[in-house]
């Protein structure tokens, strides 16, 4: 095989793994959120509906990974739902991390850099953010 078709073959592998990563990420997130959601409804289904008409911001325990994980540990059902949400956010981020690895394997350093820049922008938004 010449250089070009080796690269095309590697791109094909990358496409297959990337496709699976996205699919299973979404499925896992949906299962976790639904499990938490169903348990929440069993426990709190009869409560009065919370109002979302005025923006108050969420309590601290829903606003960070640490907070959510602490809630999950004590089996707080809303925290389990929120964990599903976090898994969903993590899915495309995992896809970029995977791209970095596969571009490295292909020795395509230009795209290792490009993918890394994207990850850094998201990390900036996640940990710092503007006007947060």
């Amino acid at each position: 095989m010449d250089q070009k078709s080796v690269r095309a073959g590697q791109d094909k592998d990358m496409e297959q793994v990337m496709g699976n990563l996205l699919r299973y990420g979404v499925i896992l997130a949906a299962i976790v959120a639904s499990a938490g959601g169903i348990m929440y409804l069993v426990l709190h289904g009869g409560d009065a509906q919370p109002s979302y008409a005025i923006f108050n911001g969420e309590p601290e325990r829903y606003k960070s990974l640490q907070g959510v994980l602490q809630g999950v540990k004590v089996f707080d059902t809303s925290s389990i739902m929120q964990l599903g949400v976090l898994l969903l956010i993590a899915t495309p981020i995992a896809r970029i991390l995977f791209s970095i690895l596969s571009f490295m394997r292909e020795k395509d350093y230009l795209y290792v850099i490009i993918s890394t820049i994207v990850i850094l922008i998201i990390a900036f938004s996640l940990f710092n953010g503007l006007g947060g």
């Binding site: 969420e58 809303s78 922008i121 998201i122 938004s125």
Partner: peptide, 26 residues
């Protein structure tokens, strides 16, 4: 997906994302 993840990353710690609202919608 990646673009929305960049946006939600900021909104998560600002408290825009409520689990009770998000679960049925998602």
């Amino acid at each position: 997906g990646v673009t929305a993840a960049a946006g939600t990353a900021a909104y998560l710690h600002r408290g825009y994302i409520d689990p009770v609202l998000t679960f049925p919608v998602v």
